[in-house]
């Protein structure tokens, strides 16, 4: 779902670049507060996994393909602020080194696949985990990843429509339609990887499910 240069008109890409830069600056500040030094190598490794997994386009419905994005996965593991920084780093490297995703569209891509992906995924995951008291974690992970892809594709559709490419209703139908299928793959990868990399903690934490709060003290 990487928007190339040329799809967005000047007002749209300039706006999304400014807003995107602001959002990244803010999340760097937030991530600083949530970051434990011992997590640094793990975050770098998960970021490399996201990059690698994004290279693998899987076929869907004949002559179309989809690929993993990873915002929800990283956010479930490390929280949405670090998640959005990891996604921004992946998108930056892809645009600069691999010409995948436009330079003018970088802000839009960071906002849609980065921020929308991370926060919609993390928000729905945490709400559902609270609601069901942590039961059915795998299904919740699957659903929230699926939802994050659908939301991100709606974001892209809105930006395309705003650019005058095609009207909003058509854009939403087309983008959301395809990404409801692609999101199935996103859900499975998110479910499997978070299931493998997370474990129940015996420590009772304030708020019950704070992934970041479990061991705040710096050893």
């Amino acid at each position: 779902m990487h928007i190339p240069d040329g799809f967005l008109d000047a007002k749209t890409w300039i706006t999304t670049t400014v807003v995107g830069a602001g959002a990244v600056t803010y999340s760097l500040r937030q991530a600083k507060l949530a970051l434990e030094p011992k997590r640094v190598p793990l975050i770098a490794l998960v970021g490399a996994f996201v990059f690698a997994a994004q290279m693998i386009n899987f076929p869907i419905a004949g002559a179309t393909s989809g690929h993993f994005l990873g915002g929800t996965m990283v956010s479930i593991l490390f929280g949405p602020w670090i998640g959005s920084i990891v996604m921004t780093a992946v998108l930056l490297v892809q645009a600069i080194v691999y010409q995948d995703g436009g330079i003018t569209a970088l802000g839009a891509n960071v906002l849609c696949t980065g921020f929308i992906g991370c926060f919609v995924g993390y928000g729905s995951y945490m709400s559902a985990m609270r609601l069901f008291k942590g039961k059915g974690r795998a299904i919740i992970a699957w659903m929230s990843a699926w939802l994050s892809i659908v939301a991100a594709s709606a974001g892209v559709a809105i930006l395309l429509a705003f650019s005058g490419t095609f009207n909003l209703a058509t854009a939403l139908t087309a983008m959301v339609g395809w990404h409801m299928l692609i999101g199935i793959g996103e859900g499975f990868i998110t479910m499997l990887v978070t299931g493998y990399l997370m474990e129940r903690s015996a420590v009772m934490t304030r708020g019950g499910l704070g992934h970041e709060r479990v061991s705040r003290n710096r050893a």
């Binding site: 779902m1 990487h2 928007i3 799809f7 290279m55 693998i56 386009n57 899987f58 076929p59 002559a63 179309t64 393909s65 989809g66 690929h67 594709s153 892209v156 854009a171 087309a174 983008m175 395809w178 990404h179 299928l181 692609i182």
Partner: peptide
Amino acid sequence: ASPHPDGLERVA
């Protein structure tokens, strides 16, 4: 990896 266009490219 599948060489087919991805979701956005398909829509485009």
